[in-house]
Design a protein around this nucleic acid. Sequence first.
DNA 1: TTGTTCGCCTAA
DNA 2: TGAGTTAGGCGAACAA
Length: 825
Amino acid sequence: MRWSGDVGIITGRYVSQDDSTVIQLWARARNGESILMRIHGIEPWVEITPLGRWDPSKSVEIDSLLEKEEIIRIEGPETKLTDLGEKPVWRIFVSQPFVVPRLRQDLGMKWTVLSGDIPFVNRFFLDGDLAMHVSIDGEIGVGDEPVDSIVDLTMDDVQHCEPFPVPFTVFSFDLETSIAHDTILCGAAVIEDMGSGERTRHTFTGPEDVILRELTDLVRACDADIITGYNIDNFDLPRITDRANLIAGRNKSARMSLMGWGRVALKESEGKRNRDSLYPKRGTARAWNLAGRCVMDTWWQARQVLRPQRETLKFVSRLLFPDDEDMQKMDVDASKMDEEWATRPDVVLEYCLRDAELPLDIMKKIQAFRRKEAVAAVAKVSLDTSANGSTSQLIDSLVIRHADRVGIAVPLTGSADRKEGQITGGYVHDVEAGLHPWIAILDFKSMYPSIMIGKNICFTTRIDPGSTEQPDEEEEIHESPTGAKFRNQSVRKGMVPHLLEGLMAQRDEHKAGLKNAKDDALKSFHDQMQYAVKILMNSFYGVFASGFYRFTHRDLGSSITAWARHNIKTIINKLDQEGHKVVYSDTDSIFVKTPVEGVKDPKEAMIEFGHSTAERFSEDSAELEFEKGLSVFFSHGAKKRYVGQVVWPSEEMLVRGYETQRTDSFQFLTDGMKEMFRHVLSDDSETAVQLAIEMIAEAKAGKVPIRKLIMSKSCKGKFDKTRNVWDFSKDYANPDSMVQVRAARKLIEKGLPFTPGMKIGFIVTNARNRPMEIEPWLEEDPVSDYDGQYYADRLATALGRLTEAFDWTGKELLSGNRQTSLFSF
DNA sequence: TTGTTCGCCTAA
DNA sequence: TGAGTTAGGCGAACAA
């Protein structure tokens, strides 16, 4: 029997069988079936080349390597390009992927090892030039993994497939636990079929082992592709593992039934793996991992997409669903969970179910799964790598597959010299404090990618004096302001420029697709895709400028930024010489004043000036665009902090850097500051000052609603398992001098969960004492008093920066009158 | 009161 | 969250 169709790959792993290796890929088909793909016939290998520069007169003795048991055969040599020029490269086929780390060390003494740290599963995507979505046609096989169909395949049976929205099954869950005993009191789960949009709801009560067993049964029975929940990475999943381990003790079959969430058979051997196991595991990795399913924490996704001022489930839900009444009712006091559970278990269970369902609503609203799917399609990786992998893994996926195709050797991560010290970054122009009318904002289109393309910047094009490869005299090389040199693209096109050009073209296609799309689904698809391409393009610079990436050299990053500084400073100087005032500039943008003297319509003049100036200074690989036109621009004189009234291409207020943009500020300040901006921009300093004075007085008198005074900061920390306490000393030089640590400690004291990295809300109750006294903000048990003087001072400082442009200092705002007016004549 | 250090968060 | 980068503002704590 055969199975054929289109599938979306969720995650994979390899298994060793006697004398071969099989790649297992779990996928969800377009028709809704779950599929386990078993890929046969891919052989594990590494490559080697002699150490140092290649000397063709030397002979190489390689056959003795065959004496090693784990080496099956050797192919080559093939000539490949390395950082030291072209060298002979042999491919060493090995018995199993897991022998590679040892072999890498052994061979590393006498050889330079290449392609020796690529996870074996990646070979499927790299060798087949495949991405998350594939079409397969293979024989249905037999196996005990809990999926609808198992299909045996070779690479010939797999084809690229145009991306389609995969109908994932998502499992979202939540637990309520006892503060006194750490036990699980109850649980809830909601399962969504993304194909039909249908949901089923489930609750779990009874003895702890029953809850765990039923949860496990449900994960397996519903055949979940994605596991989510709010803060499951740091709370629910660790709790499940801890409790299941405790209950099961040495009883392995009990452990399987309590936490065998992996998409594999309930077999003892399946629990032994460090990764992709029957059991959820974290190890040293950043995300949880288990066989066949993708774990995505809704907290982490919401934080990345929304950057909310606070990060509790309640806050994020209110932010996204302000009209939902369910959010307001049913308040269970989490700090008194044992009592709540004893007195009104039904309410707690209902609350638990709601908290299991909300993550699905949040993920849907922020389109988290489709975003990750688009990134997976563009970067050509699995859903799991897209969702939980690092940026360098995405770049690796594109770069290595290209390198393999054009004969470029793939060095190990960490093989290059570590970049010492920092490279110099972008140029930031001083801002002149005050109001500036009719400012045109020009900016470079995709500045760093354009420079990489234009100057052919790549690991493979850098001219190293130590390499055997040197350009001819006639070759027009690129020399960066730092002195680093790169080959001409007509002689050798770099991998990075090649890939970036491809991505730029791909983005244009999706933008065109977006424009022509007939229905919303198609529109959304092209929008997700073009956005994913943009993200990926902008990731190149960072990865290649990093100190540890495999294709890195310190000259790459520093040359890119040096050219960028050179380009922008040249234009600023020219504008200056022409008498055009540049009021501000940051990295790739220039804020220039429009000449409006004697002009009838200054807005029209600005639009014309913006377009023509951008065009005048545009070059092939440094394209300048007229991005926005401001009727007025204001800054108090600090870089990266400004506000402007945009009048072209649309009407809006543009704010950067100021407290209104910051999640560690408080609402009373941000609301008021926004209003002040409107007065400042309309040159109504009197009203602005008036407003500031009123706000400060209100705070001082304690008349501001306390909810508007909540500040929040993220707090790090590690749990010390041996001492069973939270340890902040690894992250902070002096933990107790940090306000967020003091707030966290108070939460922990109350038995409330603390999540390292999560923001903690707090109210300042007494700032006269050092360090200042604070209380964490608890929705169920709100603080009632605050230090009015402290908030008045904060307001005066922040708002005073704005009013100082009109000669009102923060101190004067605080006192409500201006003493220096005597001297201001 | 002032200068320094640490750490958060943002702009790009 | 063991890996994208640097530039920069600013608040709090603390030492002097």
